[in-house]
Amino acid sequence: MNGSPYTQSANNSVRITMIKVLVALIPGIAAHAWFFGPGIWVSLIVCSLIAIFYESLALVMRGYPQKPFLSDGSVIVTAWLFALSVPTLAPIWLYAVGLLFAVLVAKHLYGGLGQNPFNPAMVGYAVLIVSFPTYMTQWPAPLQLATHMPSLANAVDMVFAGSGSISIDAYTLATPLDTLKTLGRAGQSGTEIFNQPIFGLIAGKGGEWVAAAYLLGGLLLLGNRVFTWHVPIAYLASVALTATLVQAIDPSQHANAWFHLFSGGVMLGAFFIATDPVSGSTTPLGKLIFAGVAGFITVMIRDYGGYPDGVAFSILLMNIAAPFIDTYTQPRVFGHAKGGKVGK
């Protein structure tokens, strides 16, 4: 027996939400292809296929129907976020290992859609950067700086054969964050570092435009009410604030807030990863705390930690804390006194 309501809002389903997210990623992907070559399409397609295979396998093993769960699009979102987080044109086995952890371990071992305490794409990324750090630093260089621009055919070759007709050094270059870290450690001053050719107007050459495109896509989602403003705003504000403070302490060694906002995975993380409702905080105040602390950790890892970027780790760390934050930030319920205890 089904009770009321007997009506449901039209055009609202998990699938539609996921499709919106995918569409919002397109500007960023396009920018990526424009500045770093068309190889990104290859990795997106390869990652999607691998992820769908894992998802399907998991559904078979768990006795779930294939159609509603494969068509909800959640696994494609995971695959794309993963593909955009790991170096483009990496060998296929790297994708396979990362997605194995993302889809099978982080998602399905914890109960599948809606039950995962950690963002699956970030788990996949974290496993790879811990296990295969060399591969994870080989990002394609911006086209202006690359000695050779890999064509689509080259890209397919590189992904499937692990190498190709061109050497890795011909198309990869240390990322701006990497450069900053290595040269900074080597004792070079900020001005010297930022004169490196990899740097563009405010952040990495090309990369800053990709970040701007993610920002655009994210604002589209925000306007579409896929998520509320709390997480992205708090995350970006926290990154900017922390970066400014850190730079104030030692201006010669640290980059400014604009650089931090527009390099690495900050924009992608702010709008597409930290906003994941399953693994994130869900109360308004909780979202602010969740994203605020994540932003702080991101800059801390970048400026003082061992890894060039801290987006994935900061979000994973805050994923652990999300249920705890939620318990203590339950909003006031209608008709209850302010500060009344909820949950616990």
């Binding site: 449901q8 389903s13 998990v14 509603p68 909800d72 859609l113 809606g114 509320t228 409702p277 869900t282």
Partner: peptide, 14 residues
Amino acid sequence: AAPAMPCIRCGQCA
């Protein structure tokens, strides 16, 4: 009623 899918904690209900 459309078949129910798992809750993704999207918070639209809240």
